[in-house]
């Protein structure tokens, strides 16, 4: 079991619920991946969509923990109000806090993020901040009351994978006791395995699964990659070196000369 802020979770994979071809495929992907948490949002109801009551029923039937987000919010006020609305609807004080600062990269407005985190932590929320890999911002978020950090590894939906391994390694090194979840930018199961091997506690992804040719198959692959990466990290990996070391014993070789 993975203890995330007091919640005993069966896996270290958190999965988004957007962009799937159908509700049935979404449900299958969540089950197949073994994801323990799903992210959801709040929006105006649209004709022809499968939000609202249908989506509400589907999410409740999955039997996993719900992490509402403030996706799309560009101001502190928007994010704080959305978080409060989400708490009432979803009945959880967990909130994935997004305050977006740039339309092209969807990178967080880290100044607004810290301000909103202060307000929401003070109000009793458990804030999961979607942030960059900047150590100083991370410190400020912890100072604001956050108990977990969710750095991006690349822009949302980009599928680039970890573009700055050094920054992620620094985060792990600087905050050994803070749960760290890589959120955004993962494209392939090997990306998830890579960040898990760095010692990250979990990953959150959406597009890489939802937009795969076979979302259910990709969900399974990501589930395995997250497990493999974590087990590798826990098992102590070899440090790379430049020179060869024979793996077969040298002692006892026959002398044919």
């Amino acid at each position: 079991m993975f203890d995330l802020l007091g919640a005993a979770l069966p896996s270290r994979l958190l999965l988004g619920t957007a962009q799937y071809p159908s509700p049935a495929i979404l449900a299958d992907a969540v089950k197949t991946s073994g994801a323990s948490v799903v992210t959801v949002s709040l929006r105006r109801e649209m004709a022809g969509g499968w939000g609202g009551e249908k989506f509400w029923s589907l999410v409740n039937s999955l039997g996993v923990r719900i992490l509402p987000n403030t996706a799309g919010c560009h101001s502190v006020k928007e994010a704080v109000t959305t978080a409060k609305m989400a708490r009432e609807v979803f009945g959880t004080s967990w909130i994935k806090l997004e305050v977006i600062g740039n339309h092209d990269t969807l990178q967080p407005d880290v100044f607004g993020l810290v301000e909103a985190a202060c307000i929401l932590c003070e109000d009793g929320f458990t804030v999961f901040p979607y942030t960059t890999d900047d150590l100083v911002v991370a410190e400020r978020l912890l100072g604001a009351g956050c108990k977990v950090l969710m750095p991006w590894c690349a822009p949302i939906g980009s599928a680039l994978g970890p573009v700055n391994i050094m920054a992620l390694r620094s985060m792990r090194g600087h905050f050994p006791d803070v749960p760290l979840i890589v959120d955004a930018g993962l494209g392939r199961p090997s990306h998830a395995a890579t960040v898990m091997e760095l010692g990250f506690d979990a990953v959150l992804l959406n597009t890489a699964v939802a937009k795969a040719a076979d979302p259910v198959g990709m969900a399974r692959a990501f589930g395995k990659a997250v497990e493999a990466g974590r087990e590798a990290y826990s098992s102590g990996m070899l440090e790379p070196r430049d020179m060869a070391i024979p793996s077969t014993p040298v002692i006892g070789m026959a002398a044919f000369r």
Binding site: T17, R43, F55, W56
Partner: peptide, 10 residues
């Protein structure tokens, strides 16, 4: 007035 409902999200 904003009236919002649960929706898919990442």
């Amino acid at each position: 007035i904003e009236i919002l409902s649960p929706m898919q999200g990442g």
